[in-house]
């Protein structure tokens, strides 16, 4: 049976952190889904990993350096071309600061 690991309030909190907007129905469904998945992944606690080094990289590597040289990159026009709203110079976004 599904243990209710994650409450609806917790889902709203995580959604806030992830910048996602959820309605009540979605929050209910996701709380159930995530509780089931989290319940499942807690299986890892059966394993003792006290002396195990975490695997941070897929393939062991050393620092990779390169010369600090100016190289061609995409133009301003090209980078603005994909934006939903711009004025030819900048990306435009809704108001950031609330002013009285």
């Amino acid at each position: 049976m599904i243990r209710s690991k994650i409450s609806r309030d917790e889902i709203y909190h995580i959604a806030d952190l992830a910048y996602l907007h959820l309605d009540t129905e979605q929050a209910e469904k996701l709380a159930a889904d995530l509780s089931e998945i989290i319940g499942y992944v807690e299986k890892l606690n059966e394993l003792s990993t006290d002396n195990v080094e975490p695997m941070m990289h897929a393939v062991p590597m050393e620092n990779i350096l390169r010369e600090d040289k100016v190289r061609p990159s995409i133009t301003k026009e090209e980078s603005l071309r994909c934006a939903p709203l711009h004025d030819g110079e900048y990306f435009l976004v809704p108001k950031i600061l609330e002013v009285d």
């Binding site: 992944v41 890892l44 990993t49 195990v52 975490p54 695997m55």
Partner: peptide, 11 residues
């Protein structure tokens, strides 16, 4: 979760 998973990844 994350650190634990990285350790199991090693195993």
């Amino acid at each position: 979760y994350y650190l634990k998973a990285q350790k199991v990844r090693k195993l």
